[in-house]
Amino acid sequence: MTNKPSTVKGSRLSTFFKRDPLIFWGGAVVSILVITALTAQWIAPYDPLLQVLNDRLLPPSLHHWMGTDQFGRDVFSRLLYGSRISLAVGFVAVSIFILIGTTVGAVAGYYGGWVDGLLMRLVDVVLCIPTFLLILMVIAFVGPSILNIMVVIGLTAWTDVARLVRGEFLSLKEREFIQAAKLIGMRDSRLIWKHMLPNAMGPVLVAATLGVGTAILLESSLSYLGLGVQPPTASWGNMLMEGKEHLTDAWWLVTFPGLAVFFTVLGYNLLGEGLRDMLDPRLKGSGRNG
């Protein structure tokens, strides 16, 4: 595995994947996940909310691939439907924080001066309390619902993106083509949208990919404290939480949702790291083998 130019002839995509197993494996996990989430209602063998009280806590079998839970619900079906919730939490939260972060970062970086100062102090305020504690505090007081969880994660996690985008903008601003565009009197909004943002999107894409994983993890952590998605709606977090009461007698209840979270987050992170390596020119072609 070296980063010498590939000699393999064939489609660009396959070369690309061969060159970067992180992206390949990460991408594979993520795609499988998105597909299962979208098609849950056709794949799932049972209604995820259907309680069959005579079938409580059955171990995995041919009928119930991942066993049943304490209410006789099919764990596999719940896991599939739960993936929708977990992914939705991830995607929406990330969209929110990318949106806020990019806007704040772009405005601060582009205009500089007191606008920049003010916005960066805002970032400082949000960063002042460790993110998880801040999320806890807000959710505990606004109450846990899927929407609240998405919004609160989104509202607290945008600071990194803002800093990233601001940094990119600061350096872009000095570049000749931007200076030139300014000189010919291009409008600010057009300049930002057409010329600067696209150039700053690489790191944002990486942050977004990593962010989905983090949001899924956060939802499961919140569930542990009873602040995650509320039952009976299945999310991986609350499945784990409910399963932990049966740690010693029904291993399948904690094992499968745990693995699901694990592989998903791992997938997103590997993908994100792969993208980062690919997109960041500074990290390429360096080191001993360069």
Binding site: L57, E245, H246, D249
Partner: peptide, 12 residues
């Protein structure tokens, strides 16, 4: 103990 613990997990 919880009813779950009592009815299922003590039998070891």
């Amino acid at each position: 103990l919880t009813p779950e613990q009592f009815s299922r997990q003590l039998d070891t």
